[in-house]
Design a protein around this nucleic acid. Sequence first.
DNA 1: GTAATAGTGTCTATTAGACATTATCTT
DNA 2: AAGATAATGTCTAATAGACACTATTAC
Lengths: 245, 245
Amino acid sequence: MTAKQTEKQFLKSYNIHDFDVPLTSVDMAIFTLKDEQLQVLLVKRAQHPALGQWALPGGFIDFKKDKVLADAARRKLAEKTGVDTPYLEQVATFGGADRDPRGWSVTITYFALIVCDEVELSGDESSDDVKWVPIKDITNKLELAFDHKQVLAACIERLKNKVQYTSLPVNLLPEEFTLTELQQTFEIILDKKIEKKSFRRRIDDADILEETGNMKTGSNRPAKLYRAKPKGENFYFTRNIEGPR
Amino acid sequence: MTAKQTEKQFLKSYNIHDFDVPLTSVDMAIFTLKDEQLQVLLVKRAQHPALGQWALPGGFIDFKKDKVLADAARRKLAEKTGVDTPYLEQVATFGGADRDPRGWSVTITYFALIVCDEVELSGDESSDDVKWVPIKDITNKLELAFDHKQVLAACIERLKNKVQYTSLPVNLLPEEFTLTELQQTFEIILDKKIEKKSFRRRIDDADILEETGNMKTGSNRPAKLYRAKPKGENFYFTRNIEGPR
DNA sequence: GTAATAGTGTCTATTAGACATTATCTT
DNA sequence: AAGATAATGTCTAATAGACACTATTAC
């Protein structure tokens, strides 16, 4: 391999396996709101290594199906849940010699926010079982495969942090929702109470919602239903939610 | 490969090359403050592909030298600059079929903040030349190898965003510095003026600096010199710098 | 009517920006 | 003393939390 080659000659003689190439995969923390708790999807591994252990869903890149990294993440999500247009965010990439017994490995980690009643859980050849687990139950008692507990912790931390200054929780609610439901979603993730008026001012100032015209009724005054505005990317506030003084 | 194997048997017969494995590397955006500008280190590629083009420094993981991903980033930084304890932050991972002519590739991207006068630039076998480039000069005119312009844009965006609510710029200054120098650093990165009293209140409230006891003299009133407190991780403010009203 | 939750008005405490003022050095 | 920059005092405007109050439904 001399510098006098043309690029074409170089590429012809190039063999990826001449170099140290880590085992590279994509893992997902798929979050949803269920039973008034933030929950994450875990799969029981049906293959070695870590056979039988609970793990974040994930897998290898498919060179034919995936054009870019996020495609692999979306594909994994769709395989497990059937959901195909979630909020998806890359969190971090973990790599090291010891995190997988097969050798030096790298995992690119994403989290997704989905509406759980749009989901049809489905295992596949790589998992015996799939389940939602409240993130509060992910304690020392529950073992996860590989370093997935750390990976998941990073995803939860990112989510909690961003909920302090973005409108992310909108993505955990169905098409139409009330402001009270949205506030409760924030409160569940932040694990603290938010003052109603402050919250509504904040959302109103962000100008990210529109009324659907419909109302949610119950045994009391009906509430206006809102949806995210069409152009609705995530809104970034310049101040964190402060919470009770 | 049946499910009846033990994990040991599985690992024995496992061959990483039976799967789609992307070419995985680490790239660095090394930032410094030089001539009152934020600058980034670029290297001229001495090898195919993209021979002769300017690129972010980077390279492959070394399974012997690198225990975890960040080791590879630190090693690349030290090879180019001699700096060994920088502020280092993982930004994002880019992967796709088309970003490198050698095939499906993944790059884990970090940025580093270093003090440029502690640096001894040194090329090595993979680069003809190394230089600092002001980020304002990274325009349409300047071509970068692969998708490095996008990669760099992501690093710059992350840095600028975080400077709004963290104390990151401390890492761009030498051991001792004045509050005015720190303020100027913020102003350069954010590209806007900050009101002196607001800035000093903010830094004071964060309680991240300590006086060194030394003064910086000039042709006017001397200024106190500060250093980051020993336990000094980065401080996260709950509000962004607002800037002029 | 009562119960319940939706939605609003408004006070107060906090705080960031503005900007004037004072302090301390060199020449 | 003049010039320059460091450092601080303090006013004002903006705004988040607190909390009381009104509105609208089911029963």
